[in-house]
C-alpha cells in the first residue's frame, strides 16, 4: 500500500475527492503518468478539484502529488525501478562493458577482419542480429564476407574449411556443447576462431584464438531468450569504427 494514499483516507474529502482517490487506488500504474487534463477528463471533474485534492494531502499541486506517488510506488516495491533509474543504470552498465574491453585484442581482431582471408560470420537466434549487422556493415566498407545463421550449415562448412579462413562466432548460449564439434573441426583445419560471448565460463574459450566476453546477461521471459545483446552490439560497433578508421582518407 502506498503511504500517501493511505493518509488520504484520513483527510476530510468530499465525494468527488473520494472518487479521485478511488481512481488512483484502482489505476495506480497508469494514473501516475497522466497529466491534469487527461485525469480531469477521465473523472468528469475540473482541474481545480484535483488540485484542491492534492492540497488537502499537504502538497503544492498535482505534479508534486504525482512525484510523491511515483517515489512511494518505487519504494514500496524495491524490485521496481523508475524508468529514470533504469536509464541511468543501463547507461552505467553500457560504460562498464566498454571499460572492460581489451583493446589490444580488438586491434588484432580488426586486423583479421580487414585481411583478405575468407571470413565467415556466425550468429543464430537473437545473436543473428549482431552477426547480420557486422556482415552488412563490412560489406558497405568493401570487405566481402559470408553470413551463416544456421548451426547445421556452420557445421557442414567447418568440415571443409580452409586453414586461412577466419570464423567469427557470436553466441551467448549456455549450452555450448552443441558447438563442440564445430570448434573441433575448426581446430583440426587450423582455422582462426574469434568468439564473442557473454559466458565467462564458456567451454569454447580454450578453442578460440581470440575471445571477447561482454557483460550481457542471459535472461528469459516465459522461457524465451530475451537477452538484448547490447554489449555484443557495442563490441561490433567498436570493430566497425576501427575498420572505418582504416579507410583511405582517414588519418
Amino acid at each position: 500500500m502506498i503511504p500517501l494514499l493511505e493518509k488520504a483516507h484520513f483527510a476530510p474529502l468530499t465525494e468527488m475527492e473520494q472518487n479521485i482517490l478511488t481512481y488512483f487506488e484502482n489505476n495506480l500504474s497508469s494514473a501516475v503518468y497522466m497529466n491534469l487534463e487527461e485525469l480531469s477528463r477521465e473523472l468528469y471533474t475540473s482541474n481545480a478539484t484535483i488540485v484542491r485534492f492534492c492540497k488537502k494531502l499537504g502538497l503544492n499541486g498535482f505534479n508534486e502529488f504525482k512525484y510523491q506517488l511515483k517515489k512511494e510506488l518505487s519504494e514500496s516495491n524495491p524490485m521496481s525501478l523508475s524508468s529514470d533509474d533504469l536509464l541511468k543504470q543501463s547507461l552505467a552498465t553500457f560504460r562498464d562493458n566498454i571499460d572492460s574491453l581489451n583493446f589490444r585484442d580488438l586491434e588484432d581482431i580488426k586486423d583479421l577482419l580487414i585481411s583478405s582471408r575468407p571470413l565467415y560470420i556466425y550468429g543464430t537466434g537473437l545473436s543473428c542480429t549482431p552477426a547480420r549487422y557486422l556482415q552488412n556493415a563490412l560489406t558497405n566498407l568493401d570487405r566481402s564476407c559470408i553470413l551463416i545463421e544456421f548451426t547445421d550449415l556452420l557445421e557442414s562448412v567447418t568440415y571443409n574449411i580452409k586453414d586461412d579462413a577466419i570464423l567469427f562466432v557470436i553466441t551467448t548460449h549456455g549450452d555450448a556443447l552443441r558447438y563442440m564439434q564445430i570448434f573441433e573441426n575448426a581446430k583440426q583445419h587450423g582455422t582462426t576462431v574469434i568468439l564473442i560471448t557473454c559466458e565467462e565460463e564458456s567451454p569454447l574459450l580454450p578453442y578460440s584464438m581470440y575471445s571477447i566476453v561482454t557483460n550481457d546477461i542471459n535472461r528469459c521471459y516465459k522461457n524465451t531468450d530475451i537477452n538484448s545483446r547490447i554489449g555484443i552490439l557495442t563490441v561490433i560497433q567498436i570493430l566497425i569504427e576501427m575498420i572505418a578508421y582504416e579507410l583511405p582518407g582517414k588519418p
Binding site: Y133, A137, T139, N140, L141, D142, Q237, I240, E241, A244, L247
Partner: peptide
C-alpha cells in the same frame, strides 16, 4: 563510403 552508408546503428 562512396555511396554505401554505414552510419552507426
Amino acid at each position: 563510403n562512396n555511396g554505401a552508408e554505414y552510419t552507426s546503428r
